[in-house]
């Protein structure tokens, strides 16, 4: 008789996510994995590598590049995809590039609509993907708490929160008609703490932006933002100061709030997270646009 091994919560979450990723590979003909370079994406990449070892994951990575990401994120992206042997597809909205969309000029809503939501739809239409794997977690935001793991999208990539397919046990309905798609969230049941603990235990590489360091920052719309390049308006750049900061989430640098921190190691980050009293999305300016903001964005096709 084999002695019974205790399955910890992280092992169980890992096994569930691997199950979900394999289900996608088995049931869809043209899946893709969204890669946003952040910690959740790093965990997803790691899980995808595990799920198909010793082979390679049978889907490419897709990054929607708004052209306003931290420059370090882009370097990290290219290096990770290469190291793990993933095909990487990068898409930016040509219409947005032509209009020279800038969060500083056009504001976060216009920037997000055009460079993220619209760009994502373009990339998905161009690729004709039938399954799109994303790293969203249910603990991030209230509307996400009710989203399915396999979440149906119509031809226009829209989500209908009031008419979701029942999802029972670990049996996932993967049926769709041509042109429709499913968003798949393998990290649905992970919390922020689970993600950090897993990164720590599995030694998963993440961008150094998560760790505290002296960086040039400036206050912009009530939040500290990084002066990542010289597209930051001159009058702001003049006010920039060096502060020891880090980022709890990674996105477009003008829209990502830095927090002052001393956390230089993973345990210190986890300690800070546990002791802090604000949730991680607070650092993202886009959620505050309007009440129920995320639900509206998701209905329109945002991840």
């Amino acid at each position: 008789m084999i002695s019974h091994e205790k399955i910890t919560h992280l092992k169980q979450l890992e096994a569930e996510s691997v199950h979900i990723l394999r289900e996608v590979a088995a049931e869809f003909s043209n899946p893709v994995m969204m890669y946003s370079i952040g910690k959740d994406s790093s965990v997803m990449l790691h899980l995808a590598m595990k799920a198909f070892a010793p082979g390679k994951a049978p889907f490419p990575l897709l990054h929607v590049d708004t052209k306003w990401k931290f420059h370090e994120m882009i370097e990290f992206r290219d290096q990770r995809a290469k190291k793990l042997g993933f095909d990487l597809i990068v898409h930016s909205n040509p219409r947005g590039l032509e209009m020279d969309i800038s969060p500083f000029v056009h504001g976060s809503k216009v920037h997000t609509d055009i460079m993220k939501t619209e760009a994502l739809k373009q990339a998905l239409d161009a690729g004709g993907y039938d399954a799109v794997i994303g790293g969203a977690r249910r603990d991030e935001e209230k509307s996400r708490a009710k989203e399915r793991i396999f979440s149906f999208r119509d031809r226009n990539h829209r989500w209908d929160p009031k008419n979701q397919r029942p999802e029972l046990w670990n049996i996932y309905n993967t049926r769709i008609n041509r042109g429709e798609s499913v968003r798949v969230f393998p990290l649905s049941n992970w919390t922020e703490l689970d993600i950090w603990q897993y990164i720590y235990l599995e030694k998963i590489p993440i961008p150094s932006l998560y760790f505290a360091k002296e960086r040039p920052v400036v206050e912009y719309e009530g939040t500290l933002i990084s002066v990542d390049d010289d597209r930051v308006p001159e009058e702001l750049r003049k006010k920039a100061v060096m502060k020891k900061v880090r980022f709890r989430t990674l996105g477009c640098y003008p829209l990502t709030g830095a927090i002052e921190s001393e956390a230089e190691t993973l345990p210190q980050i986890i300690r800070e997270m546990l002791l802090s009293r604000s949730s991680e999305r607070e650092g993202r300016l886009i959620d505050k646009d309007q009440e129920g903001a995320m639900e509206k964005k998701k209905v329109e096709g945002y991840f």
Binding site: K6, I7, T8, Q12, Y200, P267, Q268
Partner: peptide, 17 residues
């Protein structure tokens, strides 16, 4: 947590679900 984060993490590694 404040005292010994590594100890805290060891405890929480062994949680079940």
């Amino acid at each position: 947590i404040d005292g010994d984060i590594e100890q805290y993490l060891r405890v929480h590694e062994h949680k079940d679900m």
